[in-house]
Design a protein around this nucleic acid. Sequence first.
DNA 1: AAGTGGTCTAGACCACGGC
DNA 2: CCGTGGTCTAGACCACTTC
Lengths: 240, 240
Amino acid sequence: MKPVNGDGKPAYRRIQHSIQKRIQAGQLKPGDVVESERELAKIHGVSLMTARHALAELAREGMVERRHGAGTFVAPPKIHFNKLMSYTEQMASRGLAARSRIVSAETVSNEPEIAARLSLGTASPLIKVARVRQAGDEPFALETCYLPADEFPSFSTAALERGSLFSILEREYGTELAYADEEIDATGADESTAELLSIPHGSPILRMRQLIFSTSGKPTTYVVGLYRSGRHTLLIRRFR
Amino acid sequence: MKPVNGDGKPAYRRIQHSIQKRIQAGQLKPGDVVESERELAKIHGVSLMTARHALAELAREGMVERRHGAGTFVAPPKIHFNKLMSYTEQMASRGLAARSRIVSAETVSNEPEIAARLSLGTASPLIKVARVRQAGDEPFALETCYLPADEFPSFSTAALERGSLFSILEREYGTELAYADEEIDATGADESTAELLSIPHGSPILRMRQLIFSTSGKPTTYVVGLYRSGRHTLLIRRFR
DNA sequence: AAGTGGTCTAGACCACGGC
DNA sequence: CCGTGGTCTAGACCACTTC
């Protein structure tokens, strides 16, 4: 009497996805009521606990809100705080094209501190790419990223001209990024940075040092970003 | 045949807490195995699903890790990224005492921009308290916080000398804080800030503007923090 | 093979919300 | 009042890890 599910996926996931699809397709709008546990159980031919599991997961992910005694409702779209996004993605999410210029691209072996952060030997070769990010014609940030050269063979700077670093890592090398730890502080622009950003030497700039980890837990990229004061604000949401 | 639980709390929460206590008391150390679902069910006289619920919640909170086929294990203590903590709490979590000096405390009605951020009329009275945070004898930050004066009657600056702002809000006024949205950028120290932080005028400083919301979703406090360069680094974790 | 977590059933009662 | 989500039972089988 075991009702075989069509695929190998858990029933609660299938229910979850079916609701998720309807939300993304716009058939269910924020505020709309979602089927109750009992309705879903009947529709999908599962027990209450299974239907419940599906809704509980969706609530945990922020897709729906559950109100005791009232029902389950589609949640308003969340603003993506604390999301790890590439510059290209950030611009795209605002409907803008990413503009940047590669300042330098080389393989270096003399940056022991950064190699250490990437859990590598002190003399390990690193791909080092420095780019100036532009808004309109004005440069507003200098980003330098470091990758272990051994893990990204035949890394092509040309590809960087076209697409984002993230998409290259993910599509060309199958590296799934998971999270990043960032250190943020203020500092003054040194000579070369000042020149690249067209600001006076010593101007206050925001420095963001980012260590990006892949899903396997390995540090994959180190990025140092220097942002012109007044041109850039970081947004974070903290929870209690 | 309904086994009455001693209190009104759900069984799965009691199980959760009993495990949580043993972890915090050090009886269970990171890596230690936790009782299996079946064991917990027997011990607490509940069904498997209930014991399971308790462990699933603990896993969601990051207290334990579950490994399919192997067991449930105490997770290593997590670094609290992206947590909304008061200065006092941050220091306490490092085993240090918070040291700060109140620079000024007044009620103002002429800061329309900040009143607006707190969703108040432009002329609403605001409690404004400026404090210098110290590490040892060295000042490293200037924090100015604003609260709606109407909602915190008889706000005592004296209490601030003793405890943290957060604890006053939570204990004296029953305001539960939920989350904060922060804007972070770099700027240069103005005259008065430079003097208070003992740094040259124009030195780069990290500015953090924070709007703190209560659990009811209402903006409750606005904080502007100015941090000396080199003395302070912000840590964030971003997820993909 | 034994033990674990992951999924699931077919019910039950309770607490809460809105009419 | 009825329908909702919240908790819970007493089992079951499967997938996985460990030995």
